[in-house]
Amino acid sequence: MIIKVLGSGCANCKNLERVTREAIAELGIDATIEKVLDYPTIVNYGVMSTPGLVVDEKVVLSGRVPTVAQVRELLAAVKP
């Protein structure tokens, strides 16, 4: 699973990355986290409110920092 955190270095982007790492650790899944800092690429995903979360090239969340539990649910929904 490839997870991308969209957003260029704002506090919320770091929070989202931290929350996502915790969720991955709790679920015990094999996933890599990539950070996308580049604005055109972020907008290409259709995301205007950072931070955004992309799981396997699909935007699952944008504009807010969710709780660990919410990320767990989002990831579980995508998990094959």
Partner: peptide, 17 residues
């Protein structure tokens, strides 16, 4: 509209696009 100034750039690009 809820809006954080840290989203100013992607919002600008998104609006213009």
């Amino acid at each position: 509209t809820p809006f954080c100034s840290c989203s100013a750039v992607p919002a600008f690009i998104g609006f213009v696009a």
